[in-house]
Computed example of a mutant assay.
Amino acid sequence: MRPASEAEKARLNDTFADLCRILSPSGEEAACAEHIERELRGIGLGVERDEAGNLLARLRGRGERTILLCAHLDTVPPHAPVDPVLVDGAWENANDGILGADNKAAVAMLIELARRCSVEGSPVGVELLFTVQEEIGLLGAQAFDKSQLKAEFGYVFDHATAIGEVVTAAPTLYRVEAEFLGKSAHAGIRPEAGHSAILAAAHAAARMPHGRIDPETTANLGYFHGGVESTNVVPERARLLAEVRSVDPEKAEAVLAGIIDALHDGASHGACDVDVITSKQVLGYRQKPSSPAVVAAEAALRAHGYEPKRIATGGASDANVFEAAGIQCVNVANGTEHNHEPTERVTQYALEAMLDIGLTLLEEAATA
């Protein structure tokens, strides 16, 4: 398909800025979804919204193959109004807060891709899916009924690194919740009668795996809370939340076992009880470079002067959910920068380049 015209690029930038102005933290995507639904219906597409709030629209293709293109509507909490401004050729928030390029750069690109295809047609059938609550555990994608998809494979555009990177491996993620139960007592009169849940939890925290375990594996203690707002009570309760991620599922399980051992050791040290709940939140994956989805993505990148670079990531995306459902899904870097930070930005060049790459991807996916 021909590259985007100057008029299309200008509209893409306007679409992106309009989307960024609509605050849509996880769980509060309704206004953004309504805006997108109006845009899609305005170009003649039917739009379905499920109970979770996900939006699905379809484009007919000239061939028999159908692919999935996906982006998420939610952002991390904004903490400030979003006023998109151009600074030296890049979109930034004029206020001290996120811009929302994660993932509205991809949302804007898909809207403009759909606008072109609604007029000129598409080499391949396209299912456009806009998900909710991605940032808090891929909840929208998990709630979505994948059985209604006809796509052979798909793409998300949700990796905030330089254009050219293609995520071919993503992690398995475990969440760990631990509730320590000790015994309260007056801290000044009979502290020996108490069993401090905070000390037990602290002992566990100091001994559990943390940070970068190896190039493929990480562990993090993200939440620690206990006691009451009084210093004269030996604290009876404490709670920890932790996670483990690894592209290698066996390594993830080994580190998870180390965390569980540390939690029980801490409880024993403090003469407390502990309830531990573990859940596999995300299933990891590895993709073959020879798969049609990867081949098409790399061909589209090369067509626009980018040398593809296959990478493994420690971050999960909606691609994990579709992979687990049996739909190969490639996460393609979209050139956004500093996602989840007040310095978040995306250059006009990257935004416009991704539209051209997306249009070419339709041709490559039709024949891969």
Rank of each mutant, 00 (worst) to 15 (best):
E8P: 07
A10W: 04
T15Y: 11
E28P: 05
A31Q: 14
C32N: 09
E34V: 14
E34G: 12
I36E: 02
E37Q: 13
I43N: 08
L45S: 13
G46Y: 08
E51L: 11
A52C: 11
L55R: 03
A57Q: 04
A57F: 02
L59K: 06
L59G: 06
L59W: 07
G61K: 03
G63C: 07
E64W: 05
R65N: 11
T66Q: 06
D74R: 08
V76C: 08
A80H: 10
D83S: 15
V85C: 05
L86C: 09
W91L: 05
W91T: 06
A94C: 07
G100V: 02
D102M: 07
K104Y: 04
M109G: 08
I111M: 10
A114K: 00
A114Q: 03
E120V: 15
G121R: 04
S122F: 08
L128D: 06
L129W: 07
T131M: 06
A160F: 07
G164R: 10
V166A: 09
P171I: 05
R175W: 01
V176G: 00
L181P: 03
L181V: 15
H186T: 09
I189Q: 11
R190C: 14
P191W: 06
H195L: 11
A200W: 01
A201E: 01
H203S: 13
A205N: 04
A205D: 02
M208P: 00
P209V: 03
D214L: 07
P215W: 06
G227T: 05
N232D: 12
V234R: 04
R239I: 01
V244A: 01
P249C: 10
A254T: 11
L256E: 01
L263R: 01
A267S: 07
G270F: 09
D273A: 14
V274S: 00
T278Q: 00
K280G: 01
K288W: 13
P289R: 14
A296D: 10
A297P: 08
H304D: 14
K309V: 15
K309H: 12
A312S: 13
E323D: 13
G326F: 10
V330N: 06
G335A: 06
N339M: 15
H340F: 03
E341C: 11
V346K: 00
Y349T: 15
L355E: 06
T360N: 12
T367Y: 12
A368L: 12
